[in-house]
Structures are given as structure tokens and as C-alpha cells.
Design a binder for these strands. Structure first.
Lengths: 204, 204
DNA sequence: GGTATACGTGCAAGTTATTGCATATGGATC
DNA sequence: GATCCATATGCAATAACTTGCACGTATACC
């Protein structure tokens, strides 16, 4: 008779921020966004639409939940800020513990979650009846990537005109931006190649 | 007194494969993989490591569950195949309904789930103490992408030496492959740029 | 007055994906 | 004989993420 069943612990329940395995980097992305400035959840969600968020998308619900978790873990502190004409906000900042955890994290093994693009799967289904639709979709992609590249270039000219002169950390940020630019340029080139190929099929 | 509470239906519960909103394309990726050959879950998981899976990763658990769901929806049929020296396998194939659903799906709006790369977040945390670690990580990335490019090129030479001569559908597959190749080439170039920049920082 | 938008936080319920494990056959290696 | 690997399927638990909504303040526009 087994009165006390063995209670199986979650693999994640007691993972250690300093020695354990990190499940996913949203928490680190948020902490990283807070390195220079304290921010509220709302502000973070917006900055995720322009800065780090160019490489790491997160909805505001995800951000609010993560902020709550991180402040419970003492990696962030929070304070309420009264505002006039707007609702009050809760501003979060990195604690010393948080900064240490972030620096430690950098040395851990990286994870890559590769992009998933419906369009590539669709291309496996190419036939005479949907060529023109594929062309339309590709043109849409082309337009989107163009706009993104404009944005990147604006940021680059404004803040990273002379990357070698920047402090080290900003040089790292520049390299990430450069990755986005190069990736966009490549995608644009591929769109054009693909459009050319599809046009020749469509003409037949 | 409310004897019969209003039972709220899931938004997804009764979505229609032909008119509704598709949640995610794993099911379509699997169906696509089955266009030419019937396969078992195990074989699919393996083919996902070489063909479509180059652009759409899925674990075997995901695949088995999705196969079950799709065969319940009559989009796939299944049959057990006896084997000697190995366990029996369950082979799945596209039904007519499945083929139709797949063709319809191509005309729906595409979704892109952009890549999430820890390394880019890490670069935001670049400092004198971790430059050499970043270099090590980047060199690892470089090595991986090289190997992937070799694989892509092998496939290209073997099956897509003369893309214009291929049947239409294979031309689509070729374009997806080309996307992978271009993306790899770009990533490789970025790695080299970044490594150069980091080396100059490290030397200071 | 009504509606829309920006600001601001958050719950509830669902879907999607990962991790760890269970089970089983047969061949190869130590 | 024991251990490992490839084949083959699958459950259970949890984590990660999405969707829809609720609540509330203030400004602007029709």
C-alpha cells in the first residue's frame, strides 16, 4: 500500500537561473530591453515593435505575464508611477540580481527557433492554377520587406553612421541590426528571382 | 435560475477547412509532404529532417498527433503495413478531400512566424568580457550554416540542375530550396562581417 | 451625445510545441 | 549476457503563445 505516492517534480519547477537550462529567451529579451531604461509593460510592448522586437516578437499579454514572473523572482523591481491625463503605469527596472543573471545567460548555449513561412509550403503546391496567386503573395512580401528595409536604414543612418566609434555594447546592437538588414536584402533578392521564374511559368 | 448555462463554443472548434481561418500550417506541411508518396509518421519525421523540414521543423510527437487528427477529419487515410525484422508501421496517404483542402489552402492568407535567435538578443549585451564568447558562438553558427549549404547544393545539383525544364510543381519546390540557399549565403556573409567587427573589438 | 483612438493592466480559455517517458522488435557491438 | 542503436508509435505534463475580452481614464472628431 502506497500511502505517499512519489510526487514527481516538474523539470522546470526549480531550474536555476545561474546553472540550469533556460527554456526560452523571452525573459532575457525583456531584461535586455530594460538595460538602459526602466519601462512599463505598455512601453515595452511598443519598444518591441521597433527595437529588439524587430528580432523578437511578443504580444502584450506575454510581456505582462513575464514581467510579473520576473519581478516575483527578484530579477526586476517595480514601482507605480502616477500620471495625469493617463492611467497610472507600473514601471519595471533591472535589479542587481537581474543584471547578473543576464550576464551569466550570455554564456549559455543559444537556441534558434527558425522561421516558419507558409509561403514556402505553398510553393511545394505550385501548379498552373495558382501561379498568379503566388505572384500576388510574393509581391506583397516584397512590399513589406521594402518598408522594413527603409526603417532599418533610417535607424542605421541616425544611430549607427559610424559603428566603430560606438561603445562596445552599441556595436553589438549594430551587428544585430546589420543582420536584419542583410536578411532583408537577401529576401528581397530572392523575391525578385522567384517572381521572374513564376512570370515565365505564367506566360506559358 | 439558469439550468442550462450557455455553452461557449471554441473559436476553433468548428472552423471550416474551406472557409475558416487556419490556425497554423503544420497540418498543411504534413499533407504537402504526402503529395507524392504515402508515408508513416516515422518516415515523415525523417523526411522533415531533409526535405520540407528544412523549412518547417516538427518533432515526431507533433507529427503523430497531427496525423491522428487529420485522419479523423478524413483528410488522410491510413493503413497498417506489416514488416519483418521491424515493428509494423501505419502508412498515411492524402484522401481526395485532403487534396482539395490543400489546394484551397494555397489561396488563403499566408502567415510568417519569424525566427527567434538568442544570439541577436545576446549581441545587445555585448561587452569586453563576453566578446570572445560571442566569437565562439558565431563561429559555431558559421560552421552549421556551411554544412547546411553543402547539403542544399548537393540537392540542387542532383535534382534541380535545370530548373526551367522541370514540371511546374517541382519548380515551386526549387524556388523554396533557392530561398534556403540564398538565406544561408546571406547568413554566412553576415557571420563574417560580424566576426570581423568582433575581432577588431577583441584586439583592443 | 456617440464613437473612435490612445493609454494602461490584466484574466480566462484556448491552441501549439516541447520534454520526458513508456513500450516493443531486432540487429550490432562490447 | 548487457548495452546501445535504429525502427516504430504514443501518453502525460508542462511550457509557450494566441485570442478574445474586461475594466478604466482622457482626448478628439462628427
Amino acid at each position: 500500500m502506497q500511502a505517499f505516492a512519489y510526487k514527481k517534480e516538474s523539470v522546470y519547477a526549480n531550474y536555476d537561473l545561474f546553472t540550469g537550462i533556460e527554456p526560452m529567451a523571452l525573459s532575457q529579451a525583456i531584461m535586455t530591453a530594460l538595460i538602459e531604461d526602466d519601462m512599463s509593460g505598455y512601453e515595452l510592448a511598443q519598444s518591441f515593435d521597433s527595437s529588439l522586437g524587430l528580432f523578437w516578437r511578443a504580444s502584450h499579454q506575454q510581456i505582462y505575464q513575464e514581467l510579473k514572473k520576473l519581478s516575483e523572482q527578484e530579477l526586476l523591481n517595480k514601482r507605480e508611477v502616477s500620471q495625469t491625463g493617463k492611467p497610472n503605469k507600473i514601471v519595471y527596472g533591472l535589479t542587481l540580481l537581474g543584471r547578473e543573471a543576464l550576464q551569466e545567460w550570455v554564456f549559455k548555449e543559444s537556441k534558434v527557433q527558425e522561421a516558419k513561412d507558409d509561403l514556402l509550403v505553398k510553393l511545394y503546391n505550385l501548379d498552373a492554377g495558382n501561379v498568379s496567386h503566388m505572384i500576388t503573395e510574393l509581391e506583397g512580401r516584397r512590399e513589406n520587406i521594402m518598408q522594413r528595409l527603409y526603417l532599418y536604414e533610417r535607424i542605421r543612418r541616425r544611430h549607427y553612421a559610424d559603428p566603430d566609434a560606438l561603445p562596445i555594447r552599441r556595436q553589438g546592437v549594430y551587428l544585430a541590426l546589420l543582420g536584419g538588414i542583410r536578411n532583408g536584402e537577401q529576401y528581397l533578392g530572392w523575391c525578385d528571382e522567384a517572381l521572374k521564374q513564376l512570370a515565365s511559368i505564367d506566360a506559358e
